[in-house]
């Protein structure tokens, strides 16, 4: 009895969803499955798939290794791609200023530590996902709103030139002439 109400929901999903699934292995050997529409958001992965000639039959048998991305970031990326796989193509930005609104769901997804966010950006850059890139950069940009340079240095942990020089000097001095 409990199975019956779920059936139509699955069917609706089936109608929209392409059954082709791909497997991705992250650098620390976590395995993720991702649908075809979602994987198309990443230009790198999609190029890889077309070049490898993976089809619906052999896709699950041939997992794609992604060396540069760890499991945690890959999980976020897979979540993001599955969420946005049916989004309409966005028009090319004619204006340099990005005039989009960050959806609440994505804001929640990206409300993570600074360090993780930067790792995620580098992973996104590697996988070439334009939309996630825009969203991540928006999150980082929002941190800088209405801040003085000194506050920005604290937020991003960037030393001033004087401090930087001092650090480099101490680093070069520390081995000593003997070492």
């Amino acid at each position: 009895m409990s199975v019956e109400p779920e059936v139509p929901i699955v069917q609706v999903e089936e109608v929209r969803e392409n059954p082709v699934l791909y497997k991705i292995i992250s650098s620390d050997n976590h395995v993720f499955t991702i649908s075809e529409h979602a994987v198309k958001l990443s230009k790198t992965l999609w190029d890889l798939i077309t070049n490898l000639g993976l089809t619906a039959e052999n896709a699950l048998d041939n997992p794609i290794p992604v060396e540069n991305v760890n499991g945690k970031n890959m999980e976020t990326i897979v979540q993001f791609c599955e969420r946005h796989k049916y989004d309409e193509e966005e028009p090319e930005y004619t204006n340099y200023i990005r005039e989009f609104v960050l959806p609440e769901w994505d804001r929640q997804l990206l409300s993570i530590d600074n360090e993780e966010l930067f790792q995620l950006i580098l992973a996104t850059n590697y996988l070439d996902i334009q939309k996630l890139m825009d969203y991540c950069c928006r999150v980082i940009g929002d941190m800088a709103k209405d801040k003085t340079p000194e506050e920005l240095r604290i937020i991003y942990g960037i030393p001033t030139d004087a401090e930087d020089d001092a650090l480099e000097r101490s680093a070069s001095d520390s081995p000593g002439p003997s070492g």
């Binding site: 950069c137 940009g141 929002d142 800088a144 709103k145 209405d146 340079p149 920005l152 240095r153 960037i158």
Partner: peptide, 16 residues
């Protein structure tokens, strides 16, 4: 930086 307004960009440019 494309997400910043000019005044925020100016303070960001003073950072490093």
């Amino acid at each position: 930086f494309s997400n910043l307004r000019k005044r925020d960009l100016l303070s960001a440019m003073q950072v490093c």
